[in-house]
Design a binder for these strands. Structure first.
Length: 297
DNA sequence: CGCGGTCAAGTGGCT
DNA sequence: AGCCACTTGACCGCG
């Protein structure tokens, strides 16, 4: 089991998510920003290794406007050795890596332009992992997309796009996550049957939208969709509901008791856990302690 | 130099 | 009908 946090480290004085406005786009600005982002990413990875945080999600902002038509620069070639060195460090320390294309990536949209943009974004993020020379256990996680009033038809459209439009390099890394309002675990299983995509499990989303499966059973169902030799072990997002806030909103800081309870409920199961909690590595470090005390790490 | 409106992109639930 | 949240704030113009 590996534990981690997404994208941003609040203890360091750098960010790998630097970007700029489209209006101020220039090649010079792009090169400068990517160089700073990659340098910061190396520092974050070193922090993670030193602190036993072996699972990390790379920010989508590593290369600003990477899938936008304004960006015609060959950043892949220009930063080839930097990516390769980052990948080498990742492999050397046996880190698990994921990326999470944002809400604009909708493979089942009725709008062909949206689908096209979504695929371009997936190609970009897959390319980052390819340039790092990571195997296909490094994943790209997306949601099912919109429901459009007919989830069955929407999932069939997703599968159609998957089979006819996605490059193999993307398909090999893609996984789909249950979301907190449209696609439940069972809906994702349906999509898994249509495509073979592994399901990345989110416990808080499952609490929001489910079909009565107890937590342990739900984790087992998601885990069964991962082919160990291709996908590695189950990845999951862990969070808890922010008290007195809108349903699905993430807590500020981990409840060690709730996390302990979750680990107890999934005793004997192996998975890598991404903590989607506002205070980032602070909670991740606490989670590592809880897992260690239970002999899970 | 700090504040706050705005930022490439989609969707659906809530007010 | 418009706002908000989403895996994550950061940028930049203005006072």
């Amino acid at each position: 089991m590996k534990i981690g946090y997404p994208c941003i480290n609040q203890s360091l004085d750098c960010t790998s998510s630097r970007t700029f406005r489209l209006a101020s786009y220039s090649e010079e600005r792009l090169v400068e920003t990517v160089a700073l982002n990659l340098a910061c990413l190396q520092r974050i990875l070193e922090y993670n290794v030193q602190n036993g945080l072996l699972f990390f999600r790379l920010t989508s902002d590593l290369v600003p406007f990477a899938s936008h038509e304004i960006n015609q620069f060959n950043w892949q070639e220009h930063f080839k050795s930097e990516f390769q060195q980052l990948g080498s460090y990742i492999k050397q320390h046996n880190l698990r890596i994921s990326m999470h294309p944002d809400q604009f990536v909708v493979l089942n949209s009725p709008n062909p332009q949206t689908v096209k943009n979504s695929i371009a974004e997936l190609v970009y993020q897959g390319t980052v992992l390819d340039l790092m020379e990571l195997d296909t256990t490094a994943k790209l996680q997306i949601h099912g997309g919109g429901g459009y009033g007919d989830k069955g038809a929407a999932l069939a459209r997703f599968a159609e796009v998957y089979h006819t439009q996605l490059p193999e390099a993307v398909k090999a890394r893609l996984c789909v996550e249950n979301d907190d309002r449209t696609y439940s675990l069972l809906d994702c299983l349906h999509l898994h049957e249509l495509t073979g995509l592994p399901i990345i499990f989110d416990n808080l989303h499952h609490e929001c939208v489910h079909n009565g499966e107890p937590m342990r059973e739900a984790v087992e169902m998601a885990a069964s969709t991962w082919k160990p030799e291709r996908d590695g072990i189950l990845m999951m997002d862990y969070s808890a509901q922010a008290p007195a806030e809108r349903k699905g909103k993430h807590v500020q800081s981990i409840s060690e008791q709730l996390f302990h309870d979750f680990l107890a409920e999934t005793e004997g199961m192996d998975m890598d856990i991404m903590l989607e909690i506002k205070d980032k590595e602070t909670s991740a470090l606490k989670a590592v302690e809880v897992a260690r005390a239970l002999g899970r790490l």
